[in-house]
Amino acid sequence: MTLTLVRHQFTVKQYHQMAESGILTENDRVELIRGEMIDMSPIGTRHAGCVLFLNNLLALLLGGRALINVQNPLELNETSEPQPDIALLKPRADFYRNSHPQPEDIFLLIEVADTTVKYDREVKIPLYAEANIPEVWLVDVNQEIIEVYRNPIDEIYQDVKNLGKNQVLSIQAFPDVNINVSELF
């Protein structure tokens, strides 16, 4: 006899209701991925420093052309509300006070990883492709490389490249913004 485990899938609406009712608190470091609540890894110093550096660098380079959203939720669909390390968003007068950003609001997502590289690459990046996010960077602080994902077609990124030290990276939505990968590490 084979035992099949049934998992309860949550919607974003149910996830929000759990927070509103106090089942989930601000101290719960979870994100909703494909209907499942996933514990987020603790943030190490290299990870935190890289996110802080990127936040400051992007603010300087973009000069207000995009909103920089740091470790806040995005509502991708009815069952996924991830919290990427950085999201470059289209400016809105309400600064997204009335709703979390949706896929059409996103220029670029950045995931910084030290212990979660495999998870980010195999779970979150495909989720972003399915949501048609135009560009995603996976910053691997251990290998000191950036994986760049662009051009999602049929839920798969068509253009994938790895950039290492002394290579220059640009943002697809802002081609005038250039970053030397060496600066990040």
Rank of each mutant, 00 (worst) to 15 (best):
L58S: 06
I153P: 00
P101S: 10
Y157G: 01
L32W: 02
D159V: 14
V70A: 15
Q102A: 15
N27D: 09
T25R: 06
D94R: 10
A87G: 13
G164T: 07
S99D: 14
A59K: 14
A113V: 12
Q102F: 08
L184D: 04
P73F: 02
R65Y: 12
I23W: 00
T79I: 10
I110M: 08
Q71Y: 03
R150H: 04
Q172G: 07
N77C: 05
G64S: 11
Y157P: 00
S182E: 13
Q143T: 02
P175R: 12
H100A: 12
R97E: 14
P101N: 07
E111M: 06
D28V: 06
A131C: 07
K118E: 15
Q9A: 00
L57V: 13
L109K: 03
D94S: 09
P82M: 07
G35S: 09
L54V: 09
Y15M: 02
Q9P: 01
V148E: 05
V12T: 13
K161M: 15
T115K: 14
G64V: 09
T116G: 10
N162M: 08
V139R: 03
Q83C: 12
S99A: 14
Q9C: 00
G49D: 11
L74P: 01
V181R: 02
T25N: 05
Y128Q: 03
I43K: 14
V160E: 06
